[in-house]
């Protein structure tokens, strides 16, 4: 159990998000039950007004969630000094069963909220609001995610035991018993590296082709998502040492994905690019389904293009920064293949 200002403010922020989420869900249920398409009744007007509230609330929830993810990692990093054996966020998150689960739920939540907001955005641009029911049903599905988020995070803080020694990135990522270590060890540096460049090439090429021909949307989304996932894998395996060596002069065995955040000017933009690329990539694919509804086709297609462009630029930016650090590393160390 650990309770300090950092933890308190994190929980306070989450409570705010949960309250917003619950309120939005409540409104959503109301809309779901009483929505009458084509009706001009006063009640319908009232529900239309409420739908603005819901989308604003979800927008807030998304913005706060991004902030909360950031703070969660930062807090975990800070808590490392209270946990024996932990030296960075990895150690804290790894110190009990809830840390990493909370992190992944938060990451998933960002994808989910963004998806909902896009569906909502497109739907509200068609005069017949064709997706009202599925949309608000989906909204209710976001609720468990939100509750899981706060549950896991609170459990994480309450389960921290300062005197139980945990293993940090250095050892855990080399041990087959740790799930992350297991994944990291089953992808030797060269394999992870090949996968990384392969998925990025596929994603960038597909997005580019999609922008040219407006085909391959599903493949683009799939490839962008793969690039996102392979980047996460890369940060746990071969990629993070380039940053850690160049920025902090750490030994190459140090494969911690969180270390780079200690240089906020590099770390935050880096992950921002990655998330922007991944999320907008997913949305490109999602928009393809929305295009099937005739009244949504045009606005969905329009948004899809902007998202594809965003995804292309973000993933390209992430790749460019990564390659730049690899080259600096090369200039410093004299080799790229340190593994």
């Amino acid at each position: 159990m650990i309770l300090n200002f950092w933890v308190l403010s994190q929980i306070l922020g989450l409570v705010v998000v949960v309250l917003l989420g619950l309120y939005a869900a409540l409104q959503g249920v109301r809309i779901l039950l009483r929505w009458q398409p084509g009706s001009a009744s006063e009640e319908q007007l009232e529900l239309e007004k409420r739908s603005y509230l819901v989308s604003t609330l979800v927008q807030y929830a998304l913005a706060f969630q991004v902030l909360s993810l950031l703070l969660f990692v930062v807090t975990a990093d800070y808590l490392a000094s209270f946990i024996s054996g932990a030296m960075c966020a990895f150690g804290s998150l790894n110190s009990n069963d809830y840390g990493f689960r909370a992190l992944w739920v938060k990451v998933a939540a960002i994808f989910a909220y963004s998806s909902w907001l896009m569906v909502n955005h497109i739907d509200s641009r068609a005069e017949d609001y064709p997706l009202v029911r599925p949309k608000y049903a989906l909204l209710l599905l976001l609720l468990p995610l939100l509750l899981a988020d706060i549950y896991l995070e609170v459990r994480f803080y309450t389960s921290i035991k300062a005197d139980v020694i945990t293993s940090c990135c250095g050892s855990a990522l080399r041990s087959l018993e740790n799930p992350y270590g297991f994944v990291a060890m089953s992808f030797p540096g060269e394999v992870a590296m090949a996968l990384f460049f392969l998925t990025f090439t596929a994603a960038l090429a597909a997005l580019f082709l999609h922008l040219r021909t407006s085909r391959y949307a599903l493949f683009s989304g799939f490839a962008a998502l793969s690039a996102f996932l392979s980047s996460l894998l890369a940060m746990f395996t071969f990629l993070s040492p380039y940053f850690n060596v160049v920025l902090f002069g750490l030994p190459t065995q140090h494969r911690c994905p969180f270390e780079v955040l200690r240089q906020p000017l590099v770390g935050y933009p880096l992950y921002a690019l990655l998330f922007a690329g991944g999320v907008s990539g997913l949305l490109v694919a999602l928009a393809e389904f929305l295009k099937k509804k005739p009244s949504l086709r045009e606005s969905a297609a329009q948004l899809q293009r902007s998202l594809a462009r965003l995804s292309l630029l973000s993933l390209g930016g992430f790749l460019a920064v990564s390659v730049a650090f690899m080259l600096i590393f090369y200039a410093m160390v004299g080799t790229l293949f340190y593994h």
Binding site: G13, V74, D77
Partner: peptide, 15 residues
């Protein structure tokens, strides 16, 4: 630190 700023943001601006 940036983290402190974020933290203060979280407990003041967000609520």
């Amino acid at each position: 630190s940036v983290e402190d700023l974020l933290l203060i943001f979280m407990v003041s601006v967000v609520p």
